[in-house]
Simulated assay, not measured.
Amino acid sequence: MNVLFHIDESSRWNMALGNIQNMIRYMEDQAIPYQIELVANGPAVCELQDSVSEKLGLKEPLCSLSPKIRICACRNALMGNHITPGRLLPFVDIVPAGVVEIAQRQDDGFSYIKP
């Protein structure tokens, strides 16, 4: 199963991470192969900064998920929020445009979830 999670609101991080953790647990318990991608755009890219994620208690869950899922930040949103790539958590991939990444993944057959 291929699933794309989309987050663009900073207030939705805990819900998104909880949804992803629950999905992974289910998939692994049922021995279902999966590929999960999380795309952050808009203001939600701010929480992918190392210092911000640590301050908000998001760093540990993001780090624990990073080997199992792909975590992406929209370059346009980073520029709009004046965030340089060096401030991001080291495992975050930067995509040129979050909306294009979302559309491409849906075209690839990923199910779209926006917590």
Results as ranks from 00 to 15, higher is better:
86 G>D: 13
76 N>Q: 10
66 S>D: 04
30 Q>S: 15
30 Q>K: 15
49 Q>L: 10
17 L>Q: 00
85 P>A: 11
9 E>I: 14
75 R>I: 12
35 Q>K: 11
2 N>E: 11
48 L>F: 05
52 V>F: 10
24 I>Y: 05
42 G>A: 11
55 K>C: 13
16 A>M: 09
11 S>V: 15
8 D>Q: 09
70 R>K: 15
82 H>V: 15
99 V>E: 07
64 S>M: 15
84 T>D: 12
69 I>L: 00
64 S>L: 15
5 F>I: 02
41 N>I: 05
66 S>C: 07
6 H>E: 08
90 P>I: 09
26 Y>V: 11
30 Q>Y: 15
91 F>V: 06
85 P>F: 07
11 S>Y: 14
68 K>H: 10
110 F>W: 07
35 Q>A: 10
30 Q>C: 13
41 N>G: 08
67 P>I: 03
6 H>R: 04
53 S>L: 05
57 G>N: 05
73 A>E: 00
31 A>M: 10
89 L>D: 02
37 E>Q: 08
98 G>A: 08
31 A>G: 12
38 L>P: 00
68 K>A: 07
104 Q>Y: 06
60 E>Y: 14
95 V>N: 03
53 S>P: 06
59 K>Y: 12
102 I>T: 01
104 Q>L: 10
4 L>V: 03
69 I>V: 01
112 Y>N: 03
90 P>M: 11
7 I>E: 02
79 M>L: 15
16 A>S: 09
103 A>K: 03
54 E>V: 09
74 C>I: 02
70 R>A: 12
18 G>F: 11
70 R>H: 14
78 L>H: 04
111 S>P: 00
94 I>V: 13
6 H>Y: 05
23 M>F: 13
108 D>Q: 07
64 S>Y: 11
96 P>V: 01
13 W>S: 01
39 V>A: 05
59 K>S: 09
83 I>W: 13
79 M>W: 13
108 D>V: 01
17 L>Y: 02
57 G>H: 09
87 R>E: 14
104 Q>A: 08
21 Q>Y: 10
97 A>F: 10
101 E>W: 05
26 Y>W: 12
26 Y>G: 07
2 N>D: 13
76 N>I: 13
53 S>G: 07
13 W>P: 02
69 I>S: 01
86 G>V: 12
33 P>D: 11
42 G>P: 06
66 S>G: 07
86 G>K: 11
104 Q>H: 08
25 R>M: 14
89 L>H: 06
68 K>C: 10
20 I>Y: 02
103 A>W: 04
